[in-house]
Nucleic acid binder design. Structure first.
Lengths: 208, 208
DNA sequence: GTCTATAGCATGATAGAC
DNA sequence: GTCTATCATGCTATAGAC
C-alpha cells in the first residue's frame, strides 16, 4: 500500500531533520534516525538508498518554509509593510521550523556541498528581486540609501539567530524555551530597529 | 627541544582550526589535519592524545579573539562610541578569524557540547556587563528603550554572518572574497543602522 | 621525539529470510 | 514490503622500530 510508503518516508524525514539539525550530517548515525522514527535501520536504506540521499531529501523538505518567507516582497510595494512582514515571517520560520533552519545554516556554513542547484537558483532569484525592490524604494526616496545586500544579510542573520543559536539565547535569557511573547518582542524590536535605522517612512497606504 | 614542540602544536592547531571550520568536528579526519600541518598523523596524537582533546584546544585558542572584541564595553561609557567600536571589532574578528568564528558557531549551534565551563562563564559575564551598560544608557535617556539582550543578539548575528555564512555572501555579491572596502561598507552601514535604529545620540564627548 | 604499520571499532550498506 | 544478520570500509588510536 502506497499509504505506508508515504507515511514511513514522512516519519524518517521528520526524524532525520531533527537529528541532522542537532548533530550535523557526519555525526548523525542512521541507526539513530531509524530508532527515532520507530523503524528498523534497513527501512531507512530501503526508502532512501543512502545517508547522503536521505540528507538531500531532508534539505528539499526543509527549504520550503524558508523560501515561503520571502512572499511579502512579491505581494506589496510599501517598504514599511514589506520589511515588517518579511521580518515577522522570518522569525516565525525560526520559531516553527528550528530544525529546518539549523540544517540549512549548517549546509551553508560548510559551503553548501549538498544544496541542489535549482534551490540555490531560486534563492538567488529571490535575493535579486528583494534587493531590486529595496533599491527602488531608495530611488524613490522612501528610505535611506543603504546597500540592499547588506541590509538583507542583517535581516537574515538576526532572524535566523533565534533558531540557529537557540542554546546561546537560552543561556543569556535564562529561559529553557522562548515563549510566544519572547518571539513577539524579538520581532517587534527588530522591526522597529530596521525601519527606524533605514529611515523608512512609517505610514504609507499599503499596496499604493 | 621545546621550540619544536611549540611550533608543531601551533601548526597542528592552525591546520585543525581551518579543517574543523570547513567540515565540522565529525567530518574531519585527523589524517587531513596532519597532512595540512605537514606532519605524520601519529604526531597529532602524540601532541594531543585524541581528536576530541585537539578540538578542545582549538576551541580555546579560537575563543581569545572573540572574547577580546567586547573590550569597548569596558573602556568607555558613551553609547555611540561603544556600540560603534564594538560592531567594528566584531566585524574585524569575522574578517581576520573566519575559522575561529565558524568553529565557535558550529559549537554553539549543536548545543556547545565541548565548550569548557570557564569560557562559557566568561562569555556570560561579558554579556551581563554589556547588557547592564546598555540598560544604564536607556535609563539615562541616551537611547531608545530597547531590550538589551535582543540588541546584543542582533549585533552578534549580523557581524558573525560575514564569517559564518561567507559562502552565501559570496554568491549574492558575486565576489569570491570580500575586500577590505566591503568589510568597511558592512561595518559603516551596520553601525549607522544600529545607532539610528536605537535612537542613540550621535555626538557626545567620548569617555565623558 | 618522530614515524610506520597495524589493531580495533564504529557505522554505512546489503543479502536474503520472511 | 519488512527486517535480521552480516559484511566491508574507513577511521581513531596505539605499539613499537628508529
Amino acid at each position: 500500500m502506497a499509504k505506508i510508503r508515504e507515511r514511513n518516508r514522512e516519519l524518517i524525514i521528520q526524524a532525520a531533520s531533527e537529528i541532522f539539525a542537532a548533530q550535523g550530517f557526519a555525526a548523525t548515525k542512521t541507526v539513530d534516525i531509524a530508532e527515532q522514527a520507530g523503524l528498523p535501520k534497513a527501512n531507512v536504506y530501503y526508502y532512501f538508498k543512502s545517508k547522503k540521499n536521505l540528507y538531500r531529501s531532508v534539505i528539499e523538505s526543509v527549504i520550503e518554509p524558508l523560501l515561503q518567507a520571502a512572499t511579502p516582497f512579491y505581494q506589496d510595494d510599501d517598504p514599511a509593510t514589506v520589511l515588517e512582514q518579511y521580518i515577522r515571517a522570518k522569525i516565525r520560520v525560526s520559531q516553527q521550523h528550528p530544525s529546518a533552519s539549523k540544517v540549512f545554516a549548517s549546509e551553508i556554513m560548510h559551503g553548501a556541498p549538498h544544496l541542489p542547484d535549482d534551490i540555490a537558483a531560486q534563492m538567488m532569484e529571490q535575493t535579486r528581486v528583494s534587493s531590486h525592490k529595496i533599491q527602488s524604494w531608495i530611488d524613490r526616496g522612501l528610505m535611506d540609501p543603504v546597500d540592499p545586500h547588506h541590509l538583507l544579510f542583517t535581516i537574515w542573520a538576526s532572524t535566523q539567530t533565534y533558531a540557529d543559536f537557540d542554546w546561546q539565547i537560552s543561556r543569556v535569557t535564562g529561559k529553557d524555551k522562548m515563549t510566544q511573547r519572547d518571539y513577539d518582542i524579538a520581532a517587534d524590536q527588530l522591526t522597529r530597529l530596521i525601519l527606524k535605522g533605514c529611515g523608512v517612512q512609517a505610514i504609507q497606504m499599503s499596496g499604493a
